[in-house]
Simulated assay, not measured.
Amino acid sequence: MQKNTDYTSLVAVGDSFTEGMSDPAPDGSYRGWADRLADRLAVRTPGFRYANLAVRGKLIGQIVAEQVPLAAAMRADVVTLVGGLNDTLRPRCDMGRVHALLEEAVERLAPTCRTLVLMHSPGRDGPVMQRFRPRMEELFVQVDALAARHGALVVDLYGAGVLGDPRLWDADRLHLTAEGHRRVAEAVWQGLGLPAEEDWRTPLPPAAPAGWAARRTDDLRFARRHLGPWIGRRLTGRSSGDGLPPKRPDLLAYPVDGAAQRPARPS
């Protein structure tokens, strides 16, 4: 039986990955894969509605408490849920609690939408990824189990080698570039049964190896501009998303080329 691909609404739930950080729009706001997906769905479906509840820095407990009830009440055709990675990146992480909260989120969202989309999030190749890989893979096992029980769709970004390429990651080494977000949007688009426009897994062309001095300079710049402030927030219990509202809190009609008409927000 052919899959019904007439999607009239989308709600995105999660953290900075779904908010779209490091994919800047011309007005200085963030675009991201979810907005890119909404742009394409709006072209396809007149009257398409879209909400993005994701806020950078949110832990899975905050997502469940602050975003899941709102998303469930919207009863959209498609809900995307990505969360738990911020928890796994903390030195002290109770994976049992993360699993329980993720299960709660899926159980509350799955009955309220036609398609619930879960993901194996991508990870940038490098020493940080190696350190936290076991936790990430443990989380993805849970995602697969929940998807099987609740009939959710899983988009496997982690298994796509190209999304580990450092060239698809911003200087902060935590967020995808615009090209990375564009590929994620295509991956979700295809997962929803819509016609492929490209092979989003296509590797980048080979890169010339960087010299030792260039790598050290890049590492020092990263430590000063990104790693230091991140550690500071962890030590003081602050988050990059403290006080920020969702960029699209209501499920409203999304204009064609909505990227050019989204409200600005702090970066």
Rank of each mutant, 00 (worst) to 15 (best):
E104C: 14
Y50C: 08
G228C: 10
R36P: 00
R173L: 13
L194F: 01
G243T: 04
M21S: 07
P266S: 11
R135I: 08
P122L: 07
G159I: 03
V79P: 01
P263M: 06
F17V: 09
S16Q: 03
R233W: 06
G83Q: 01
D23G: 11
N52K: 07
A223V: 05
P263G: 05
A152E: 03
P26R: 11
T217F: 00
L163V: 13
L157Y: 03
G61Y: 04
L37S: 02
V154F: 02
R238K: 15
R201F: 04
A185F: 11
P206M: 06
F48R: 02
G164I: 08
P46T: 12
P134A: 11
A147V: 15
D242G: 06
K58R: 14
L116Q: 15
S240R: 07
T80S: 15
L235V: 14
S22K: 05
V128F: 07
L176K: 01
A73Q: 09
A51L: 09
L116I: 07
R114V: 04
E66I: 14
L157E: 07
A213Q: 10
A213T: 11
L10P: 00
A260L: 00
S22M: 06
C93T: 06
D250C: 08
A110W: 00
M129S: 12
V64A: 12
A54Y: 10
A178C: 07
P46Y: 13
Q67Y: 09
W200N: 13
G191I: 01
V98C: 15
Y30F: 14
G83F: 01
D15P: 03
G151H: 11
P111Q: 15
R216T: 00
G83E: 03
L85Y: 14
V184F: 07
L85G: 10
G161Q: 09
M74H: 07
H181E: 05
G57C: 06
T236F: 11
A34S: 11
R183M: 09
P205N: 05
F222R: 08
L168K: 01
L37P: 02
E138N: 15
A207Q: 11
R90S: 02
R262H: 03
Q142K: 15
L116K: 14
R216K: 09
R182A: 12
R97P: 02
T112W: 10
D94A: 09
V188E: 12
D219A: 13
